[in-house]
């Protein structure tokens, strides 16, 4: 498994953990009229910080184990895989975010509810991004 495939796996798993953290601490439909500056803000902040810390630690460990691979730039196949995966995620995000915001507005959500949907859509689209990368790496192209 190449260095970049390993990092894709790590990011994918970390994003799934972040999603589960997000859903368990801010379960629907509580967030429909949430105060964005209150509990929700703290959950988002903790989630993002935890995500960054886990990523940094995992990447640092992997870079120490394979320093040459970590320093080497992405080759053309890795760049192509990243581009194709980002392209898929770029289609998922607007559909999810606009669709979810449209639905929750009709359910009577406030700005907290809309923020919740936008952030959730972003996490899901990034999960799609990294899941696609892993899939392309496994297939070989």
């Amino acid at each position: 498994m190449s260095f970049r495939e390993k990092t894709a796996w790590i990011t994918l798993i970390t994003l799934i953990v972040l999603l589960l953290f997000y859903l368990t601490h801010l379960p629907p439909p509580w967030w429909l009229r949430a105060n964005p500056s209150g509990f929700m803000f703290h959950v988002l902040t903790i989630g993002v910080i935890a995500f960054v810390v886990i990523e940094l630690v995992a990447y640092a460990i992997m870079a120490l184990r394979a320093p040459r691979e970590a320093r080497a730039p992405s080759d053309e196949r890795e760049q192509l895989i990243a581009l194709k995966a980002r392209s898929i995620a770029a289609r998922v995000y607007p559909i999810l975010s606009l669709g979810s915001v449209f639905v929750v507005i009709h359910l009577g959500a406030n700005e907290g509810g809309i923020l919740y949907c936008l952030f959730l859509s972003f996490i899901v689209s990034q999960i799609v991004n990294y899941a696609a990368r892993v899939g392309y790496y496994r297939r070989g192209r």
């Binding site: 498994m1 190449s2 970049r4 495939e5 691979e69 080497a72 080759d75 053309e76 196949r77 890795e78 790496y137 070989g140 192209r141």
Partner: peptide, 9 residues
């Protein structure tokens, strides 16, 4: 100037 995995693919 590519990875081993690319050569394999």
């Amino acid at each position: 100037g590519v990875t081993r995995q690319t050569i394999n693919a």
